[in-house]
């Protein structure tokens, strides 16, 4: 049972981010409770990826504050703590193509935690099994993997250091519906097994319904609606209604 009154593991307050003349985030406020799975939805170019990249310190907002487990993420030390306790699955997988699959999965163990290569390989294979990949995949190059397998390897890499919070950036993009469903199932299973919180951004409503405890909608750089996933179909919000039903007509202008 998620305790929503507990201190948020991640909190964004009034976060602004601008690229040249374009203001992408215009005051994003967001809190994620420990163990909670929050899915952020929104049209293309509304700042979903910028939001999680700002939360991870990959982009620096011009204004606002980001707290991880109550600590203001403001310097290298707090950023390092945040990164040690979080995992991230990138949209394209972002696997290192110069390394074998097991080296990708065990990267943080070898290069950050100083675990020996033998032990790291063993733990990598254990984590590959958790995402239903055989030990024989461990020595493959990432270019030899299908899109679905790459996402599984990226998931294994995200969970190997038992993070408290995992970010998923469009985890099912580019996958067929069956593989996408399998990846969604793995995400739910692994996040539950770790007892971690999760922040996912996606356009895929099937993913939203499968993964989310709560849903937040980002529109024009602000969170305009937040509620439990069960409230999606009767939110009373025209933006949510248009997005959930995938209609071109409505308050959200198509990004073309």
């Amino acid at each position: 049972m998620i305790d929503f009154s507990a201190k948020p593991i991640l909190e964004l307050k009034n976060v602004h981010k601008t690229f040249g003349p374009k203001q992408v985030l215009r005051g994003v406020d967001l809190a994620v409770a420990p163990g909670q799975s929050l899915v952020i939805i929104g049209g293309s170019g509304t700042g979903k990826s910028v939001t999680i990249k700002s939360a991870l310190g990959l982009m620096t907002p011009e204004q606002g504050e980001i707290r991880f487990d109550g600590e203001l993420v403001s310097n290298r030390k707090t950023l390092d703590t945040l990164r040690r306790r979080t995992g991230m699955l990138f949209q394209g997988g972002a696997l290192f193509d110069s390394l074998a699959v097991w080296e990708n999965v065990a990267f943080a163990l070898i290069y950050r935690d100083g675990v020996g290569r033998g032990e790291a390989r063993k733990r990598a294979i254990e984590n590959l099994a958790k995402v239903r990949l055989p030990a024989s995949a461990a020595d493959l190059r990432t270019a030899e993997l299908s899109g679905g397998m790459q996402k599984r390897v990226a998931l294994a890499r995200a969970i190997i250091a038992t993070p408290d919070l995992i970010f998923f950036d469009e985890p099912t993009t580019g996958l067929d519906p069956i593989t996408a469903d399998a990846v969604n199932n793995l995400i739910v299973e692994q996040v539950k097994a770790l007892g971690a919180a999760a922040v996912t951004i996606t356009h895929d409503m099937a993913s939203v319904r499968k993964i989310a405890d709560e849903v937040a909608m980002l529109h024009e750089g602000r969170i305009i609606w937040r509620g439990p996933v069960s409230a999606l179909d009767n939110s009373g919000n025209a933006h949510i209604d248009q997005f959930v039903h995938g209609r071109a007509e409505g308050p959200i202008q198509p990004a073309i």
Binding site: K53, L56, G57, L58, D80, R83, R84, T86, G87, M88, F90, Q91, G92, A94, L95, F96, D97, S98, F107, A108, Y111, R112, R157
Partner: peptide, 25 residues
């Protein structure tokens, strides 16, 4: 070309999230 491809495919961002500094690694 190699590092540029890593940059545009978010591999360098992935390094940072794994606490590895691109300067060092």
């Amino acid at each position: 070309a190699e590092i540029g491809a890593m940059r545009v495919t978010e591999q360098i961002d992935a390094l940072l999230t794994l606490s590895a500094k691109p300067e060092r690694y």
